[in-house]
Simulated assay, not measured.
Amino acid sequence: MSETNLFPSKLHECLLEELSAMSFLADLLKTEETALVATDVATLNNLTQAKSQQLAALSILEKKRQFYLSHMGYSIDAKGMQDFLTTQQVDRTISENWEKLLDVSASAKETNRTNGILINRQITKNQGALNILQQNNPAGAMYGPNGQSTNKSSSGRGFIVG
């Protein structure tokens, strides 16, 4: 059996890996959503690296899927996958797994959109708090470029301890 004949089964294996990886990313995004609502900074910090790693893994799997589609003569996009599924005599589970991957991806995309809204709300809230704090300071900024307070409460005379 030639390597090309193995591509449909390799594509299905890749699809299963991609579905698993996307499901894991969707779970991470749901955890992120919960942490954003709870303002759980520690969890959010931990999720950043995990999400990056998962996105890198998904990118590799997508390229792998594209490789198999391309070498079987299909375009490397979603239409190519649909063409493969409709023109080949493939097991029904391959089509089902592709549909699951599309569904999980859409769900993850929506959760990511929601998380973006939550992040923007928090940024707006923080900016509002900073604006309130800066209103009490006639000079504007509370801290200078060196990180030191620009408010000088003393008269400029220091204390000498002797």
Rank of each mutant, 00 (worst) to 15 (best):
T48Y: 11
N146P: 05
A139C: 09
Q53Y: 09
G73T: 06
A106C: 06
M72K: 04
L55E: 10
K79Q: 13
Q54E: 07
L47D: 00
I60W: 10
S52I: 08
Q53E: 12
G144K: 05
D91L: 05
L85F: 05
R113A: 08
G128L: 07
S9T: 04
G162P: 12
Q82S: 09
N120H: 09
Q148Y: 05
N45D: 10
L44R: 04
K51Y: 01
L101M: 06
A56K: 09
G158H: 15
G140S: 03
N5S: 14
T86W: 10
F67L: 13
L102C: 10
T48G: 10
N97Q: 10
S75G: 11
Q135C: 13
H12R: 02
A50R: 01
T86M: 14
E62Q: 10
D103C: 12
M81V: 00
E96W: 11
N146H: 05
L15T: 00
K79L: 13
K10H: 05
Q148P: 05
Q53S: 11
D83N: 07
L102H: 08
D103W: 12
L15F: 00
Q122E: 13
S155R: 11
L55S: 10
K51M: 00
I119D: 02
G144A: 06
A50T: 05
E33W: 14
S107L: 12
K63V: 08
N137K: 14
T111H: 08
A129C: 12
D83M: 08
D103A: 14
D91E: 08
